[in-house]
Computed example of a mutant assay.
Amino acid sequence: MTAPFKLYMTGDLVLDEPNADFFFDKTRPLLAEADLLIGHVEVPHTTRGQESVGDIPAPASDPENLKAVGRAGFHMVSLAGNHIHDRGGEGIEDTIANLTAQGIVSAGAGLDLAQARRPALASRGGLRVGLLSYNCVGPKDGWAGQKRAGCAYLKIITHYELENANPGGPPKVYTFADPDTVEAMQTDIAGIRDRVDVLVVAFHKGVVHTPAHIAMYEKAVSRAAIEAGADIVIGHHAHILRGVEVWRGKPIFHGLGNFVTVTRALTAEGNDNPVRRAWAEKRKALFGFEPDPDYPLYPFHPEAKNGMVAACHIDASGAISPGFRPIWMTPTGQPEPLGADARGRGVADYVAAISHKAGLKTEFAWEGDRVVFKGA
């Protein structure tokens, strides 16, 4: 029997600390299993450019740190997100050039909108894989234009509706994507569909630091991508896992959470940037959590210690068996792979719980050390 092609996809990569290779060490055997490995680079790696204004900019990371991504075995990365433009066009240009020099192809950002919408393409083991990447969360200053560097995007509209006699009380929140940008995404998908065997669409989406919750637009845009021809949809941005589902036979990973995401920029103590320090304090009140003090490089929601690597197996006929490998974030900031033991089952149970809480009906089973989706 021919072994399946293994397509693995990870959560966010934020490499703000020196000796970046260290943070991948526990997962190297797992990552080496992949025939093709996809990640998401969250911030620019550059020494150039001016820090952006208008949102909460992330600090640019050392270009040397990005080289750890190639040494960890990544082949493709998505770039569309709310921080990739935080050092303007120079930061995007330098980040893409750094990746290209490592042989890593990227999608989702560029020096203009045409470049940002251009797919990443890779062929390995006789399988042609394509990747498209879109930012759903803003800020508008980071969106690419006809002559402006930035990222590919979907414009999401938010409407608040008061549904009882309580002015100033909690509203119901409606979110939906601007149809023109959805159509543009579907045009991109149609344009690449015949050139690849497997097409992955990555969305930067969701409400940060909030367990289980999937906003209204997230299901709609993910399903629209599949209906247009995507084979797999993955999500980043929330910095915490989201549920998974199967739509028309295709898997949607609504949020892969964090992978190597080490930073001090979201810690209030010792933060010399007043804007980032204020946000580090505000987000704890907004989202109701306190980072674990034993995790100095990982200032995220305590439930964000649960993690996964999406692990899709593709057989000779092209059929996709979706699943994931559980991981756990350690105090050092290193993700640790887990198997089908009590700890791994705890993470799998967490994924099942948040999926069902979000109204997704996915059921799971174990296949060795991989959690698979029943019926997919």
Score class of each variant (00 low, 15 high):
1 M>R: 13
1 M>K: 13
9 M>L: 15
12 D>N: 15
12 D>R: 11
13 L>Y: 09
13 L>I: 14
17 E>A: 13
21 D>V: 04
22 F>Y: 15
24 F>W: 13
28 R>H: 11
30 L>V: 15
31 L>N: 10
34 A>Y: 15
34 A>F: 14
40 H>D: 13
42 E>Q: 01
48 R>G: 09
49 G>Q: 04
62 D>M: 10
76 M>V: 04
80 A>L: 02
82 N>G: 05
82 N>Q: 08
83 H>E: 00
84 I>L: 13
84 I>E: 04
85 H>R: 07
90 E>H: 05
90 E>S: 05
92 I>Q: 02
101 A>E: 10
103 G>M: 05
108 G>V: 07
111 L>T: 04
111 L>Q: 12
111 L>S: 05
111 L>K: 03
113 L>K: 08
114 A>S: 10
116 A>Q: 04
116 A>E: 03
119 P>R: 02
127 L>D: 05
130 G>C: 04
139 P>E: 01
147 K>S: 13
149 A>S: 10
150 G>K: 12
159 H>L: 14
163 E>H: 10
172 K>T: 15
173 V>R: 11
176 F>K: 13
186 Q>G: 03
202 A>C: 15
203 F>R: 00
205 K>Y: 08
207 V>S: 08
207 V>H: 12
209 H>V: 08
216 M>A: 07
218 E>F: 06
220 A>K: 07
227 E>A: 10
230 A>E: 05
232 I>Y: 02
236 H>V: 12
237 H>S: 09
237 H>T: 03
238 A>H: 07
241 L>P: 09
245 E>W: 14
247 W>R: 01
248 R>M: 07
253 F>K: 11
255 G>D: 00
260 V>G: 14
260 V>N: 10
261 T>K: 10
262 V>Y: 06
266 L>W: 09
267 T>P: 01
268 A>W: 01
270 G>P: 05
273 N>Y: 14
275 V>T: 12
278 A>S: 15
278 A>H: 14
281 E>H: 13
283 R>P: 04
291 P>G: 07
293 P>T: 08
295 Y>W: 07
295 Y>F: 15
298 Y>G: 14
304 A>E: 01
305 K>Q: 08
306 N>I: 04
307 G>S: 10
318 G>P: 06
322 P>E: 01
333 G>I: 01
340 A>S: 13
340 A>M: 08
340 A>R: 12
352 A>C: 07
356 H>V: 04
356 H>W: 14
365 A>Q: 08
